[in-house]
Design a protein around this nucleic acid. Structure first.
Lengths: 188, 188
DNA sequence: ACCTTAAAGCAAATATGTTGCTTCAAGTGA
DNA sequence: TCACTTGAAGCAACATATTTGCTTTAAGGT
């Protein structure tokens, strides 16, 4: 797990972490991601640079933590009444958010400063959680639903692959096509 | 395209590029990836640091270029006699190479120092090329074959997604399962 | 209230990254 | 072949960022 999870829960450490994260978000929008530096963030957060270096190691790990926070879904997926329409709506929104320049930047940052892969694991877990909700709902309607792994393979993975490796020409139609390919074959 | 492609084809620039790339590879194995720095690479390459900064921008972009080079396939996929066995063999080998710690490191490096996405695009193009060979061969045997995009979605993307986001428990069986899921449904 | 102890602050030392200017040598055209 | 042009390399001074030892602070336990 990344270092931030090891801090004492309340008190000074927590305040420092919060103000550093806030400083990153503020400066990202004020001066742009490229211009961020550890000393700059430290100054804005009212903290010495060495504090950041000791807690996060380097700028990338800090940015990775902040990026993961921003990738956490804020609400449960909307209920459209059926498995296929729930998945379609979720996939369309996911793709739209992730293909936006800011979304791509967060994904890259999350992967980048992540030596042990825990932040990447979190990103995947977020998607899995959302899908779980959708699948549970479908089970409640007695629709027969695939399992989470299958949805990850058929819907999430292709979207992520293209976002990272071939960002050209991605649109909602592609998201719908992936969902169709999944619910078309009810097997496995 | 990354800067290295803009250098004059022969002569001094080419020599500098070659010796810098060689220095990266040597030092990677001698001191480890973590310990690489631009001044260190420059010293080994017999070049001043400013040359590297001006040509590549920073260490990440240099490492990205070197990583892409190492991800380029060295041979055409082996011919196993049928589409499904060709794909299986290729997918197994791909997964095995990419899940190795060094493979994962190269993928990450390739993605990381790649502001414009051209190196990521190359990685994907390499896989597409190999798959193209396999599909052409299948067409020559009058097997009915899916198109490249379908193979990318069903086989390559899931492997890459898991390598990057959930590297636990990946093995050849997973690669075979993906291929089976693809050739099982001959549609689309 | 007093210990204990992670974590923060501070400051000096070191390493890295940037820049203007000079020098070199590959390609170009008389 | 020999200037001539030009992109790229070298050098050196400068600016920033990173590391580190030591001191101080304050959270949590007794």
């Amino acid at each position: 797990m990344s270092r931030k999870t090891m801090v004492r829960p309340g008190g000074r450490s927590a305040r420092v972490q919060a103000s550093v994260h806030a400083a990153v978000r503020e400066l990202e929008s004020e001066v742009g991601r490229e211009a961020l530096t550890v000393p700059l963030v430290a100054a804005r957060a009212g903290v010495t640079p060495s504090t950041i270096y000791r807690r996060w190691g380097d700028l990338q790990e800090l940015l990775s933590d902040v990026a993961v926070e921003r990738l956490r879904p804020e609400a449960a997926p909307v209920d459209k009444g059926s498995l296929s329409s729930d998945l379609e709506a979720w996939a369309e929104q996911f793709l739209q958010e992730m293909t936006a320049p800011s979304g791509r930047a967060y994904i890259r940052d999350a992967l980048l400063g992540d030596p042990d892969g825990s932040n990447a694991g979190l990103c995947s877990a977020y998607a899995a959680e959302q899908i779980d909700v959708i699948l549970d709902r479908a089970a409640g309607r007695t629709e027969n639903a695939p399992d989470v792994e299958t949805v990850l393979d058929h819907v999430v993975a292709p979207m992520m692959y293209r976002i990272l490796f071939r960002p050209e020409g991605l649109d909602s139609a592609y998201a719908r096509q992936l969902v169709a390919g999944l619910v078309g074959s009810t097997d496995r």
